[in-house]
Design a protein around this nucleic acid. Structure first.
Lengths: 206, 206
DNA sequence: CGCGGTCAAATAACGCCGTTATCTGAGAAT
DNA sequence: ATTCTCAGATAACGGCGTTATTTGACCGCG
């Protein structure tokens, strides 16, 4: 009899080497987080979902923080893909607005990832500098859009592109965070989002 | 020998009735939160700090959520006191700016309370509608300041005072939240805070 | 072929957590 | 004085992150 066919996700991934195992475990963790929230992200739960023991997780990641960090980066990677998928039209201002809508859509459709990305899910977790840099880099396309607006004359020529990016990010995140906290019920969230992001952009109009 | 003098905070408060006991326990919880962070907010830790057993806590509060809710409200109550203490000068616009600075100072000086207030500390906790209303009411003085600005002609006469309040709150919180996440290192937090709150106000200038 | 050695994985333990069941003991009511 | 009541302490349950110990499959080598 040849090698018996693997039954669990762990055994299947293990057969393809260490790297495949790592990503398979992270995939399971991401699925668990997205589907059931951060409370389901326990080492034991994850091990059970992967059909292995917690030893494998500690061997692969060292501690839970490393898994959390990976999900933090995965969350920002998903955001980045979402923003990158927004079509660049002719109008730089409209492109900027579309990026804002995409940011909000991503936050509302992946609320559990958003929680990890902004520290609302795993209390003790603090991302390291590299993870934070990767997070900020997810907004590169937003920065480029801001630059395009400056170059097209939509924004003041002396506008600081980094500042535009930061303020748009803070404006979007501020509204979304309060909305998630229940402070902007119903359609108020969307209204406030539009108003504050518009106000942030308006600060840099010629 | 008369009644022996009580040794722990629990025994002392217990002698003064149920209400005093409740507030004493919450005081201890608030101190624990402020001094050691949300991780120190465990039922066992709190019981130990109060020199009693966890039974007392469950009898008094039912479950940990009730304690968390009380600290959520306490956090917003502290914010309210802080905002109420800002002197109303002659200039409504300057008063508005001073309120913004007070909001930020409160957030940075009571980071652990700020975490509870915005769900970054106790993962499962969701405040009930009454607590959320009390939270929003903490910003009443900000709303009144906005109204004063409208009436003084500093802001457009048709400006929606609630919208001004919401946008200022979201702007302030957005910057502070990203700053807490490590995205605005050094003095950048303060700069971004000033810029975005100014931008939010500017949206309502005549 | 047998036989140590190596090392990944499983099992089980430790000390936390929130919560709850059981026990204890002081005071009120009869 | 005896019984009842009920607040509080103790100890338990299941779950958590983490780690020590055990198991067992594979490997080179006599």
């Amino acid at each position: 009899m040849p090698a018996k066919s693997p039954t669990g996700a762990f055994a299947r991934a293990q057969a393809q080497g260490e790297a495949a195992l790592r990503t398979a475990l992270l995939d399971i963790a991401a699925g668990l987080l997205a589907a059931e929230g951060p409370a389901a992200l326990s080492m034991r739960r994850l091990a059970t979902a992967a059909d292995c023991s917690t030893t494998v997780l500690y061997r692969q990641f060292g501690a839970k923080d490393a898994i959390t960090a990976a999900l933090y980066r995965e969350g920002f990677a998903r955001l980045r893909r979402r923003l990158d998928a927004v079509p660049r039209g002719d109008d730089p201002a409209e492109y900027l607005a579309a990026l804002g809508r995409a940011y909000r859509a991503n936050a509302l459709e992946e609320p559990n990832f958003y929680g990890v990305m902004h520290g609302e899910a795993v209390p003790g977790f603090v991302p390291d500098e590299e993870s934070r840099a990767a997070a900020a880099a997810s907004l590169d396309v937003l920065r480029e859009a801001a630059r395009a607006c400056v170059e097209a004359g939509v924004l003041r020529p002396d506008a600081d592109v980094d500042e535009v990016t930061d303020l748009l990010w803070a404006a979007a995140h501020g509204v979304i965070s309060l909305e998630r906290g229940g402070h902007f019920p119903g359609a108020l969230g969307e209204e406030r989002f539009r108003a504050l992001t518009r106000a942030a952009v308006a600060a840099f109009l010629p």
